[in-house]
C-alpha cells in the first residue's frame, strides 16, 4: 500500500494482502481493485472510486479550489504546512475529499468520495466544508447525496476546528433530513473515529463494502484499555451489520446497481 502505483511497471505481479495469492496487477485493476482470487476489496483513491461509480464522463467536480490553512501553526516532527505540501504533491489533490455532481445509472446525484492517501483522509476544515457544501447543494437541487466514506478521523493538526467539523456536518445533515432529502452512505475501509461518529453514521441508508474496517476507537486503544484480546472480525462491516448499524453489505461490483435501486425506492 505504501508503494506508489506509478512506480511499478504495468503488469507486475503482486500478492494479495488478504489471501496471499500472487495476482496480476492489471487483472486486479480491471476487477475494480478487488482480488480476483478472494475478492478482497483494496483501498482506492477518490478519483478511482468516482470513475468506477459514475456514468462515464458525467462527473463535474465542485469546490475544487478549497485548500487547507494552518490555523494552529501546528508543528510535530514536521510542520503541518510541510506535511500538507508534501501530500499535495504526492497525491495531486488539495485535501482529502472530492465532491461534485454526477450520474449513477442515469440518476443525478451529489457525490463525495474520500481519499485515504491524503493524511488518512482525516477531516479538517476543508473536508468539513466540502461535505457541508455538498449537503447544501443536495438540498438546493433536490438530488440524492451519496458519500463514500473512508477516514482515520478528525485531523488533529487543526485541533478543535477539526472536531467542530463533526458538529457542522451533522447539523447540515439535519437540514437535509428536514428537506426530505435522501442521503446514502457507502462506508469503505477504513471508516473510523470522528467521521464514523458524524456524517458516516447518519445516512438514511448505510451500505458498506465487505471487510471494511468500521469503528469509533482504534483497536489498539481498546485492547490497551480493557486488557483483553479483541474478538475476530471486531469492527468490520460485517460486525456493524450484525449489531444493526449497517443496512447492507454491498460488493464493489454491485454498488452502482444498489445505489440506483435505493434512489428509485426513495422516489428521488
Amino acid at each position: 500500500m505504501m508503494v506508489q502505483k506509478r512506480d511499478i511497471p504495468a503488469g507486475i505481479w503482486d500478492s494479495c494482502q488478504e489471501c496471499g495469492h500472487m495476482v496480476y496487477q492489471k487483472e486486479v485493476e480491471e476487477n475494480l481493485h478487488c482480488c480476483p482470487e478472494c475478492g478482497h476489496h483494496r483501498r482506492i483513491n477518490a478519483r478511482a472510486r468516482i470513475e468506477q461509480l459514475v456514468d462515464p464522463d458525467s462527473f463535474e467536480e465542485l469546490y475544487a479550489d478549497l485548500s487547507p490553512t494552518d490555523p494552529l501553526k501546528f508543528k510535530d516532527r514536521i510542520p503541518y504546512r510541510e506535511r500538507i505540501k508534501a501530500v499535495q504533491r504526492k497525491t495531486g489533490e488539495r485535501d482529502a475529499v472530492v465532491v461534485g455532481r454526477a450520474f449513477i445509472r442515469g440518476r443525478a446525484v451529489i457525490l463525495g468520495a474520500m481519499n485515504s492517501d491524503f493524511i488518512m483522509a482525516s477531516m479538517g476544515a476543508v473536508v468539513g466544508e466540502k461535505i457541508t457544501r455538498a449537503i447544501e447543494r443536495a438540498i438546493e437541487e433536490d438530488h440524492p447525496l451519496v458519500l463514500v466514506t473512508a477516514s482515520g478521523g478528525a485531523r488533529m493538526q487543526e485541533g478543535m476546528i477539526s472536531l467542530m467539523q463533526m458538529a457542522k456536518t451533522s447539523a447540515a445533515l439535519a437540514k437535509l433530513d428536514e428537506a426530505g432529502g435522501l442521503y446514502i452512505v457507502v462506508a469503505t475501509d477504513p471508516t473510523t473515529a470522528g467521521v464514523a461518529a458524524s456524517f458516516a453514521s447518519l445516512g438514511d441508508v448505510i451500505v458498506a463494502e465487505p471487510g471494511a474496517m468500521m469503528g469509533f476507537a482504534g483497536p489498539r486503544v481498546i485492547a490497551n484499555t480493557i486488557k483483553q484480546d479483541l474478538p475476530d472480525g471486531f469492527q468490520t462491516a460485517e460486525f456493524m451489520l450484525k449489531h444493526g448499524f449497517v443496512d447492507r453489505i454491498v460488493k464493489r461490483h454491485d454498488l452502482r446497481r444498489e445505489i440506483a435501486r435505493i434512489i428509485d425506492y426513495s422516489g428521488k
Binding site: A197, G215, A217, G218, Q228
Partner: peptide, 15 residues
Amino acid sequence: PGIGSEERGISQAIA
C-alpha cells in the same frame, strides 16, 4: 473505548 461501546454503536450515538 471498549467492546460493548462499539457493539452498541458509540459512533452512531454521538452522531
